[in-house]
Nucleic acid binder design. Structure first.
Lengths: 350, 350
DNA sequence: CTGAAAGCGCTTACAG
DNA sequence: CTGAAAGCGCTTACAG
């Protein structure tokens, strides 16, 4: 019924050791035997028994993770790592090892150092989250040269050799924000779109979210469309934000909603809360603690979750399935764009 | 490092066969040996290697599923079964077998017959979705007598012996619907709460959803609160629904929103669409095809997903983890209450 | 009631 | 370049 290595060996008239060598592409087999065995493997549709394989093999499957570390001010990168580790412990029977190469998301050199270190450790697979686009692309090139398969998460830089991408579609999430805004404002008045980002922090995402948000209204014909005012704020300190947003409220009348394109929405919430503006619809990103606080006191209406934990979890599962179980992955594993309000918050917190 | 059966055997001065017998509670061991081995197992914190165990054992792990079958008119029960089967194929290396005992959700006798049949097959574990409360409770009693562990899904009847419950909190999902309604109507005008159910179909869920919806407004102090008009419709044919809802629109003025407490929301959507009432906010349940159609043409504003596929998937994973991997499950595995609109629909479709 | 031995399907030195 | 044998940790008849 089930085809074993032994069956292949009998058919090919060689020993099981040789079959094993062919299956794992070791170079110690004569070309003739190799091709004969390969065709028998295909013909008999051999599928390895991963239980037996894991049990017999000493060497663990080593996965290297190259993502930013989190800081007290920016917890975002904690959850992906947790997701990866949770997936790892679910698979612990299969002898998987995760090694973390964490870098400072504002320090390009740090990234380069870590990526060299990673390559020198010769892992079996790589999970990486691109922050520095150009440098990550080069890093992926290097992985490919060393024949190390890699998966890209959170931001899709579409390297031709990547096993898969795991993350959200930022443009689509902008459209979701717009739909919520439409429900809440009915297309009346003005809407501010605020992007708070020091450096290039999450820059791709921000641009695409803004784009998706705008496109939503452009596609809407016939209905009322609000006036949309976009502003980038290059600092994320409260005083700076307070001044900027405060200024906008003086400049523009009839503001009905604010869409903040990343996790800094709590700073805007703080402003609205302090100035007691209760009828502004506020939508932003990410279930980080300060945001949750303002969600619970009704200052933030909705948060869009990037599901960082799930991204990490799925990244590891996907690469494991692809490499160990031979299940070819979807090239783009899109993480759902969850809409979170006070009422459904509890079931999303890991 | 890792404790094996052999280590236990050496320590206890018996053979590995005996250890195996103790671990699996087979009755062919003398009481003295048994208790000695048990205490050594505990002391050395033995954890079985499930790879080796699955590899060596012939017998598959047999899981019986007792849920309603789906019909052309009601596809709801298709997805849980798919979720179970998908989980099963993900675990197929571990030799799991799923056997389906599907019953007619409107036929109590059919349920009883299937449950007898199931018990006679002596499965290793049971996944069941309660429709007939009293009868399911008795069925679970019977499972307990036969020492078959069971998990309850979709509706929690809180049997004291259940391994876990996997499903949504219907009351909380009513609150989510209310929050959406508040965003869309700002608490102005009147809101209809419509429950369309022939027989007792999903009755517990409907009551709890209504309850959660009402409680939301009760907790809201200070804000505008709409007038809420609840109505049960005992038939789900379009003509009947059209007459009833049409009548309500004649009876009440200034209706701003309609909350349909189950998947029949497409019938109300059809009415709104046919009568060209565009400014009524409409919220309902479940990503079934007719609902998706009206979501895409902007008649339904939001759907709440019960994530039936995920319920099935998690039910199987939970019982497998609990019984084969000794991971004790959360007693209530609450499935997130996803809010679906046209814009985020795509990433939720399996 | 208990032990010795073979086996699950694959991998890994080792010998040639 | 290839094979025979031992081993991964657990389970299962079989013999006593």
């Amino acid at each position: 019924m089930k085809i074993r290595i032994k069956d292949i060996a009998d058919r090919a008239g060689v020993s099981t050791g040789t079959i094993d060598r062919v299956i794992h592409g070791r170079e110690e087999v004569s070309p003739g035997t190799r091709s004969r065995v390969l065709s028998i493997l295909k013909e008999m549709r051999y599928e390895p028994d991963i239980l037996a394989s894991s049990l017999a093999s000493r060497r663990p499957f080593r996965i290297a993770v190259l993502i930013p570390f989190h800081t007290p001010e920016n917890w975002f990168w904690k959850d992906p790592m947790n997701g990866i580790n949770n997936a790892c412990s679910e698979l612990n029977h299969f002898r998987i090892e995760v090694k973390e190469f964490l870098y400072d998301q504002f320090d390009k050199n740090g990234f380069l150092e870590k990526s060299v270190e990673l390559l020198e450790s010769f892992p079996d697979a790589v999970i990486a989250a691109p922050v520095f686009n150009h440098e990550t692309r080069e890093f992926f090139d290097r992985c490919h040269e060393q024949s190390i398969p890699f998966i890209s998460m959170n931001d899709n830089i579409r390297h031709p050799e990547q096993v898969a991408y795991v993350g959200q579609d930022p443009r689509q999430s902008g459209a979701v924000a717009a739909q919520l805004m439409k429900t809440g404002t009915n297309g009346q008045g003005k809407i501010l779109v605020i992007s708070i980002a020091r450096d290039m922090d999450n820059y791709n995402h921000i641009l695409n979210r803004e784009k998706g948000f705008r496109e939503y209204w452009e596609k809407l014909n016939g209905s009322a469309v609000p006036e949309i005012i976009t502003r980038a704020i290059p600092k994320d300190t409260y005083n700076y934000i307070k001044r900027t947003i405060g200024g906008m409220f003086e400049e523009f009348s009839d503001i009905r909603g604010i869409f903040v394109t990343n996790s800094r929405v709590y700073q805007v919430a703080r402003f609205l809360h302090n100035t007691e503006q209760k009828n502004i619809m506020l939508v932003g990103y990410d279930l980080i603690n300060p945001n949750i606080k303002y969600l619970n006191n009704d200052t933030i209406d909705y948060l869009i979750s990037q599901k960082p934990h799930e991204q990490g979890y799925k990244a590891l599962m996907t690469i494991f399935n692809a490499l160990r179980l031979n299940k070819k992955p979807t090239p783009e594993l899109l993480i759902p764009i969850d809409i979170i309000c006070k009422e459904n918050l509890c079931c999303y917190q890991v």
